[in-house]
Structure formats: structure tokens, C-alpha cells
Amino acid sequence: MPALDSVVIASGLSTFVQTLTKSIALGCIYAMLGLSFVLIFKGTQVLNFAAGAISMAGALFMSIMIADAGWPFLPWSNPFAPDGGRASIPLWILHLMFALILAALMGMIIERLAIRPMVGQPLFAMAVVTLGLEIAIRPFNLDASAGQARSIGVPWGNGTWTADWLDGAVIPKSYLAAIIAASIAFAAVYFFYRSRFGVAMRAVAFDQEAAMAQGINVGRVFSVAWALGAALAVLAAIFFAMTPWPPNGAVSLEIHPIWVFRVLPVIILGGLDSVVGAVYGGLIIASFEIFAGQYLSQWTSILGPGYSTIVPYLAMLGVLLVKPYGLFGTAEIRRV
């Protein structure tokens, strides 16, 4: 797996700034994915191992709409598709919205078919159902991408932005985009959590039966949790399919099917059920990964190519030895 080292090294300061921005950007992406896990876990007590397949499917929806000018699963062509596969920003955002809506629908269908019948089963059984889903959905992704890296038509392509006042640090626009998207997503989740429905969802997470007794429709909460979770996973995947991220800024077969597993340390660190934890966990894990990738690179011949991608796991093992339920998680998740 290629290392995440495509930024140009200039001076000490600019290297540091670039590394830092990259950490934050990756941290934001991890945090979005982590939030997807946490929302689904809090809402339905399911550790969603299918996030990889779901997120890749969503990113492929985007690619099919933009690059192929079609619709996923449908034979018609897409009248909104940009000419030549490179969209203007508003048009691109419109397609992003389409992809997120489709992702949400996909999440709801999955919940309805495979998760709802499992309510009340042990946590592990539910987690394994999602492993089954991951296996079942993945071939469709591989098939749809036809063995190729697929473009999602990023408007700013591989554009960068140079900060002269920071010693000429070069910052890819995709990093900024990821940070902006994540900020919007976090704000949305924050407000959702305080909304009527969000409170209902947290109530369901805490005590399902008591929530039912209040007249909360648990099925709908499950549905919404999966819709939001799937959309967040897809959002993360789309912002990870942009140019500076390996391998070459596209929905890729090498990265997307497994990258979700790199986020497991994030939710371990943050705790499976903590929203704040997902954000901190994402930022912490990503900076471990990126800083190790940048500053230990002279040891690559010993550490092995792509060593930075296992730094999160090492960090995770370290954390768990000290705090078995993560930094923000509650110890009660023992109903296995």
C-alpha cells in the first residue's frame, strides 16, 4: 500500500504545517467515519463492519452519476451530469447530495432487512450480520468498478493552495474540503442530537423498552440511525477519494474495501458509544498515522512500506492496555 507522502517537502516549518494539515484532514475523515459507527452503535447497538462496503458503494454511486452520467441501478441517463466528468462546485455538491440520499436509503434498506429481525440478539451476533453484509455487498462494488479506480469528478482536481506566510507550505484543496465537510457534518450531528428525534434516539440507545413506553417508535429510530450512519460513511469515503489521498484520488479497490478497518482504532480510542470520542479519536489516530509517516520515513526500509497504516493499531493496543473501554467509552458494553 502506498504511503501517504505526496506532499512536497520544503522546509522544517512548511513540512510541519503540511503534516499538521494532513493530519487534521485525515482526522476529519476518520472522525466522520467514526461518527457513522457511533451513530449506528448508539442507535441500534450494532457494530457496523459493513461500513466499508456501504461507503464504497456510495462513492461508486457518485462516480456512476458523474463519470458515467447515469444513475445507479437505473437504465436512464443523468441529465445533471457535468460534461467531461469535471463538475462545477455547486453541481458537484448537488451530486454529493444525491449520493448521500441514496446512501441513506441503502442504510435504511439494510436495517430493515438484516438488522431489525436481529433486535434483542447478542451484540456479537449483530456485528457478524454486518460482516455477512460486507461480504455480500463487496462483490457488487468490485463488479461495478470493473477492476478500475473510479473518478468522482472532484471540481478542484488536484489543486493546491500555497501559504507564503507559512514558509510556502503547500496545502491540497482536498484537505480543506474534507475539513469543511467534516465541520458541517459534526455541526449537523450536534444539532440532530439535541433535536426531538435525536433525544429520542439517545433514549432508545440507553433503554429501548423505556423508550418504547414513551411512545417512541423504535423502528423509526433504527431506520434513521442507519440512514445517517450510512450517509456519514459515504461522505467520509467520498472525501477520501480525492487526489492527494492514496492511491490516486479515486474510489479504489485497494483502499476502499478495507480502509474502514483502519477506523476501528478510532472508535476504540474514542469509545464505541461516544460522539465526542469519535471526533477526538479520529484526530488523535490520524495525527499518529501522518506524523509517523512523515517523520519516521527514513526508517522505511526497516519499518516496511506503508508502515504508517498500522500505527493506529499499535496506538489502539497501547490505549486498550491502559483503558479497556477507550478514552470516552462507557464500561457497560458487556452484554455479549
Binding site: 440507553f206 423498552e209 423505556a210 423508550a211
Partner: peptide, 11 residues
């Protein structure tokens, strides 16, 4: 069976 992680108002 109060929702322990919710505030009084949220409950």
C-alpha cells in the same frame, strides 16, 4: 427506568 445519559429536560 430514567434515561440516565439524558438531562431532566431531555427525559
Amino acid at each position: 427506568r430514567c434515561f440516565g445519559e439524558l438531562t431532566v429536560d431531555e427525559n
